[in-house]
Write a protein that binds this DNA or RNA. Structure first.
Lengths: 137, 137
DNA sequence: TTATATTGCGCAATGA
DNA sequence: CTCATTGCGCAATATA
């Protein structure tokens, strides 16, 4: 993991907010076949803001912050999800262990019952020697 | 793997789904105002490639593909993680249900034992719960 | 060294 | 309208 030092080289945007808009970019197909050129300027305040505009920069900055925030949130959520996986895994193991224990206890009791039943059918009266004592938690 | 159309869309006005009219923007870099790219021109094989270079574009395109691939992978992983969470949740419920069942069974058996013990101490020989079952004679 | 994989970031379209 | 999400490209960096 690493953090970019201070490279603020964003995607070819130009000028700082304060310098005259002098985009060093020029369309290669001025009037060729492409007429899908965006609303360009000199349109009313429809939508596209000029790249050097004050409002434009303000909007961009806000959006950039929103983007950052959103991505941070997304990452945190992902991390939480992974944490939950581990948590659930642990609980899973715990539950399985408990099941194992209960199953064993049940088995023991059933065996006792069976033994008793056999004794009955054999007409035998076993002396209650040492009864299995167990404690429940 | 998705193959993006080899559009040389820079980071400026692009991403117009439906409007393939990509105004090919090219950096005007005559050597006058470019300050964001100090690749120490004139150097031989420096590290920075020129923006109009063939190799540059090739490199960029490859990287773009790699980026797409990586992000796709990341998303898939996140999805898998969420799926795992749900899966584990279900299994946990299942296990808890089983524990509940086993606990109940155990409780019943223990009650039976207790009853039996009481009967013994009362010197009684119960015949279970089946009233009206007497041997006539 | 080169090639690919990750990551942070900005832009723009779109969703809410 | 504003803010949140999302896809995408760029560049720095990490990994092979």
């Amino acid at each position: 993991m690493n953090q970019s030092p201070s490279s603020a080289s964003e995607g070819l945007s130009d000028a700082l907010p304060g310098s005259p808009a002098t985009p060093q970019l020029v369309p290669l197909n001025p009037g060729g076949g492409g007429k899908a050129t965006p609303p360009s300027k000199n349109s009313k305040k429809s939508q596209r803001l000029e790249r050097g505009s004050e409002e434009y920069r303000q909007r961009r900055e806000r959006n950039n912050m929103a983007v950052k925030k959103s991505r941070l949130k997304s990452k945190q959520k992902a991390q939480d999800t992974m944490q939950r996986v581990n948590q659930l895994k642990e609980e899973n193991e715990r539950l399985e262990a408990k099941i194992k224990l209960l199953t064993k206890e049940l088995s023991v009791l059933k065996d006792l019952f069976l033994e008793h039943a056999h004794n009955l059918s054999d007409n035998v009266q076993p002396e209650s020697s040492t009864p299995g004592q167990e404690s429940a938690g």
